[in-house]
Design a protein around this nucleic acid. Structure first.
Lengths: 125, 125
DNA sequence: GTTATATGTGAGCATGTATTCATATGATAA
DNA sequence: TTATCATATGAATACATGCTCACATATAAC
């Protein structure tokens, strides 16, 4: 043992501010939460899904309606609705052949609004 | 012309609820905003970037510190910091060889908090 | 039963992306 | 100058993802 600089395990860097690293490390949310958070934002990170969610802010809609509104194929919309279902952001009810989708979350709108505030501030600079 | 069902342009679907489609269409935010919003969430949709931002919530940090904290290579962190810089979510200052990064946004924390609320509610069901 | 319509889904393809590797740049120290 | 360290970056690779196409399923109408 000597007093050479500390190196991290899988990292090619010398620790420069060990105190900061330790303190920040202690205060980080747990791995799983951060992973889930990234997964949630991944769902929001697609224009088609954003549009679908904004459409559902305004009204319950069936798959065909959404496809027409966004001028996309029914198949593409159906695939994206599956992603939104898996993320539990939308729910649906069947009425004969038609499947109606609605929002299944109260936070999405607020998250989007905060996002838009960020975007508008960036633009005004 | 006849009274056959209306079909949308690039869509293989019959319009089922024309009134709903028209009303929702009128109230949609403009294309550009939705695109920008998706781009912002794309940046949040990666575990490494989420971790970097959470680290910067707690303290100003240099590249090596972040690499050590997350147990990743300096190069990987540097690449991701570039993405965060381009999204104007972080800013930096140089002090000799060392580059210190800090947050450049007040909304990110609130967006993340709302996201975590969503996640926790999903879990408790 | 058959036909038509609404939706769901698997495969394939094209594009995007996160990391690694090697190397470049820029600043300090010897 | 030369060596060293912190950071940046281009290329390559591996993997993820969004759409299309073809087809399957499901329900209703005939």
């Amino acid at each position: 043992m000597n007093n050479s600089k500390i190196k991290a395990d899988g990292c090619d860097c010398t620790i420069i501010h060990e105190d900061v690293v330790n303190r920040v490390g202690k205060n980080m949310p747990k791995e799983e939460s951060l992973y889930d958070l990234a997964e949630l934002f991944k769902v929001f990170g697609d224009t088609t899904r954003i549009k679908i969610l904004y459409a559902l802010f305004a009204a319950e809609m069936c798959v065909c309606d959404i496809a027409v509104l966004l001028n996309m194929t029914q198949s593409a919309i159906s695939h994206q609705l599956r992603v939104l279902k898996q993320a539990r952001l939308v729910k649906y009810r069947k009425e004969g052949k038609v499947v109606y989708y609605t929002l299944d979350d109260e936070h999405v709108k607020e998250i989007f609004d905060q996002g838009l505030i960020h975007i508008n501030e960036m633009k005004s600079l």
